[in-house]
Write a protein that binds this DNA or RNA. Structure first.
Lengths: 351, 351
DNA sequence: CTGTTAGCGCGTTCAA
DNA sequence: TTGAACGCGCTAACAG
């Protein structure tokens, strides 16, 4: 049962030829028997399977990939594995593609163009069968490489023009939910801290903010839309700028939860209380800040928009599988509904 | 400059042969020129490089892998990408190995033995040059597969006997720091919620707890050591059991932050305040719960042990690189010092 | 039903 | 200094 040679490490893996010799047959027959395609004598078939098992044979994925030009791998680019929303998306992808036995190359781009390009090169060199780009702004050479490569699915951000399927949250819905919530609380002077200009989602949300404010009949004073980023740091700058407005906003919408928390921290330092003096909202529900979550010490949570992250990933994985099977189909765009999570960082506007 | 054929997607990648034909040379010469090994006429060398560039040639990683039996990939197994400590470790690994142009296969095992085995198989099939196992309990077939495979580096948990390098936090130090902190606050009745029995780290910490309590001269009453897991859920059960003790502990050490938060939530539900009535500590600093972190709304943090996660990963990556270069060297074990993060979930014992 | 043959794209001898 | 030839391990077409 136990092979003696396994005592010394890294024994050479058996190949089809080894099994063929062992059985007195040809490689081709063994290959057919093991792959299940093509006819082979049932008796010999059994023998082949048995000795394969006995020798611990496993077909070499790279030899197969070289031959078939399919690697059974998928490249996934994420901006920052350390940001909690991405692992959640990745898990969704994993769930979807692992049923078809794909393995993921997961790569961090750190929002760095050069790194992104290098990683895309590396993934293409490895012949990934498809790519999923999460929150990636892709341009220039990287764009050209991708367009000449295997199918892409874009999550959150999208290139323009779009050359692949797209899965993202319904940003318009999310922004509208936040604004309606604040409006209902009596807020009229809402300010918006925008995400990075390079992000298509950030641009979309910014546009939604303007449109929705108009719909609600709220004017947007000069200086109430601040150019920011997704880094917490930018929250402090934005908050400072907004406090300098006269009068300042009664509510601030942040582009994500990191920025929102930093805004809150800054306001606290300035002696302002959240939500009593000013309301703040996030976006993403990155930290699952609900009851039983991280705010267990004091049940205090951030009011935010919950993106269905897991599902985002699952749909992206499924979209890619479908496309790899049917490369010709027209590109699909899927927007997932968002969920307003009302917690403790918003309150009625001070009159 | 811009190749017209790129308009239609998925053009066939150029090979050595394409370049050879273009230059009127043989594949072998081209290969030597591009790899930099072996002699080749400087003039032709330049020509070859230029046309390679012009054609957008990139050497096929899988063909090379098949030929050289080195894939330039590393497999990483983690228990749950959704637990914030793991992405942080992965990032450290990434930083370390990307300097040598390795790409990571990142796989979730979900603490599931069957999944783990399937993933190890899959990674070995893909000929990974090395493996990093983060918090994995590996046994039976999986163990045998690994022992016959490429070098492994273990992070946090380790198999027994150990057959690879090991990088982990200094658990003894962490537990001692927590107990000394509590002792200094006047606590004597400390209880310990243990992690899963299958985890070597959990076992280690449990042993440290007993040893350290003895050193401090504190008896450990019957029922003060509870068998738990790393799931938050187990915190509630443990807390319930501990409250049933007479008298109950004045401080509870949890095996990780998830469990700690759940314990706190449970205690709150029972009308007990943390830390006024009872102190609770975590382990890992999974959420970076410091100032400016997630507790921005109310500056309330969990007292816990900060594992140097990034560095853990970096050292693991470096250890693997070193071992792949020098397979024969004796296995190294590295323990990283832990850092006590005193925050708001611990206070002086009630007299 | 089975074996022979021919690559996939690359690296590395060995002759010339 | 270069080219011819082989093989990494597998799949697939073809002939028997």
């Amino acid at each position: 049962m136990k092979n003696i040679t396994t005592i010394t490490a890294a024994a050479k893996r058996p190949t089809l030829l080894d099994i063929a010799r062992e059985c007195g047959l040809s490689r081709a027959t063994v290959a057919r028997a093991l792959s299940g395609k093509g006819y082979v004598n049932p008796q010999r078939r059994q023998l082949i399977h048995d000795t394969a098992e006995r020798l611990g044979y496993r077909t070499s994925a790279i030899a197969r990939a070289l031959r078939t030009q399919k690697s059974a791998t998928i490249g996934v680019l994420i901006a920052d594995i350390t940001n909690p929303i991405f692992p959640e998306i990745v898990k969704g992808i994993d769930e979807a593609v692992s049923v078809d036995n794909y393995t993921l190359f997961l790569c961090n781009t750190d929002e760095d163009v050069a790194k992104q390009r290098a990683l895309i090169r590396s993934l293409l060199d490895r012949q990934v069968d498809g790519l999923i780009l999460i929150s990636q702004t892709v341009a220039d050479e990287a764009l050209a490489l991708l367009q000449a490569g295997p199918p892409c699915v874009f999550v959150n951000r999208r290139p323009d023009p779009l050359f692949g399927d797209y899965i993202g949250p319904d940003n318009a819905m999310g922004v509208a939910q936040l604004l309606e919530h604040l409006y209902a609380l009596g807020h009229r002077r809402m300010a918006y801290v925008a995400g990075p200009a390079a992000s298509s989602t950030a641009q979309e949300r910014r546009a939604c903010f303007i449109r929705e404010m108009a719909r609600l009949g709220c004017p947007v004073p000069e200086g109430f839309i601040i150019a920011g980023s997704y880094q917490g740091e930018s929250g402090r700058l934005a908050a400072a700028a907004l406090l300098a407005c006269a009068p300042p906003p009664t509510a601030i919408l942040a582009p994500n939860d990191f920025v929102a928390l930093e805004i809150i921290a800054f306001l606290n330092e300035r002696g302002l209380r959240v939500p009593d003096d000013i309301s703040v909202t996030g976006f993403d529900d990155a930290f699952k800040l609900g009851v039983g979550g991280l705010y267990a010490l004091r049940a205090q949570g951030l009011t935010t928009i919950d993106q269905p992250k897991r599902q985002l990933g699952r749909l992206a994985g499924e979209a890619l599988l479908k496309r790899m099977a049917q490369p010709g189909a027209p590109f699909a765009t899927t927007l997932l509904p968002t969920l307003l999570a009302v917690r403790d960082s918003t309150a009625p506007a001070k009159s």
